[in-house]
Simulated scan of single mutants.
Amino acid sequence: MPSDAYPLDEIDRRILNALQVDASHTNAELAALVHVSPPTCLRRVKQLMDNGVIERQVALVTPEQVGARLTAIVEITLDVQAADRMEEFEHVVALEAAVLQCYRVAPGPDFVLVVQVADMPAYHALAHRLFTTHSNVRNVKAYFSTFRSKFETRIIV
């Protein structure tokens, strides 16, 4: 276990696993589910949030139901890989709502992005905004999802 990892006990693990499946439970429901008292559950969840173990709680939206039908996995290679230039690129993509995830990777490209847009014209507009006009982008390689066979957000703890 990395030294910066928060020390989790079995109760914390049960709480985290239950919340990752369905975070809409009331405190009483969650407490019953993980076999602790409601006050203990509330205190534990607050500690997990205060210590950054639970980053945030969100609703997962079905992309097709909101018109975001095209998923692209995009590899980006920069011309200059100096730390400040990498951070500059990360800042640019962080401001773009259609970029759902951004990873620095090695070896190979410098970044891998997960992008969700309405359609191919929307992807082209995004590519122009983020990649074509950015002077440090050397290479862009995009893969377009034809079918999503698995999508999961939970981490087994």
Rank of each mutant, 00 (worst) to 15 (best):
L33A: 11
V34A: 02
H35D: 14
P39K: 14
T40D: 11
C41I: 04
L42Y: 13
R44Y: 11
V45E: 12
Q47L: 14
L48Y: 12
M49H: 12
D50L: 14
N51T: 06
I54C: 10
R56W: 06
R56E: 09
Q57S: 12
V58W: 04
L60I: 14
V61L: 12
T62N: 14
T62P: 03
E64R: 12
V66R: 05
A68S: 09
R69L: 09
L70I: 08
T71Q: 09
E75S: 11
I76C: 02
I76V: 14
T77N: 08
T77C: 07
Q81D: 15
A82R: 10
D84I: 00
D84H: 08
M86C: 12
E88Q: 09
F89L: 02
E90R: 15
E90M: 15
E90P: 02
H91P: 00
V92C: 00
V92G: 00
L95Q: 09
E96T: 03
A98R: 07
V99K: 04
L100K: 06
Q101A: 13
Q101M: 12
C102P: 01
C102K: 01
V105T: 09
P107H: 05
P107I: 03
G108M: 06
V112K: 02
V112L: 08
V115I: 15
V117T: 07
A118Y: 00
M120K: 11
A122H: 11
L126C: 03
L126V: 05
A127Q: 08
H128Y: 08
R129W: 02
L130N: 02
L130T: 05
T133N: 01
R138P: 10
R138N: 12
N139L: 15
V140A: 04
V140D: 00
